[in-house]
């Protein structure tokens, strides 16, 4: 199971070079997202789109809330 983290831990991980991924649909991402996040919608998350991410750095995913 992936590790669940809170916003305080996120700030620390981002400072250490973690990647932040918004998995909401593109239109929602374009309206608003956490500063610095990239968008890979869940429906489009696959081996090809994941190449946008560095597998050697931590990755943090999020959506709107507990969906």
């Amino acid at each position: 199971m992936p590790n669940e983290i809170d916003r305080h831990e996120i700030k620390r991980l981002l400072a250490e070079g973690a990647q932040l991924v918004d998995v909401l649909p593109a239109d929602e991402y374009e309206a608003e997202h956490i500063a610095g996040a990239v968008n890979i919608p869940l429906k489009a998350l696959n081996r090809e789109t994941a190449t946008r991410l560095d597998p050697n750095r931590p990755v943090i995913v999020y959506c709107w809330d507990y969906q």
Partner: peptide
């Protein structure tokens, strides 16, 4: 949605994956 994304990334070989379950609403 984000738990599934985290699991998918793990299946793709990402070793250090975190799920911000409270999401951008919390942020």
């Amino acid at each position: 949605m984000s738990p599934r994304a985290a699991s998918r990334l793990t299946s793709l070989g990402f070793r250090e994956v975190y799920d911000y379950v409270a999401g951008e609403a919390d942020w």
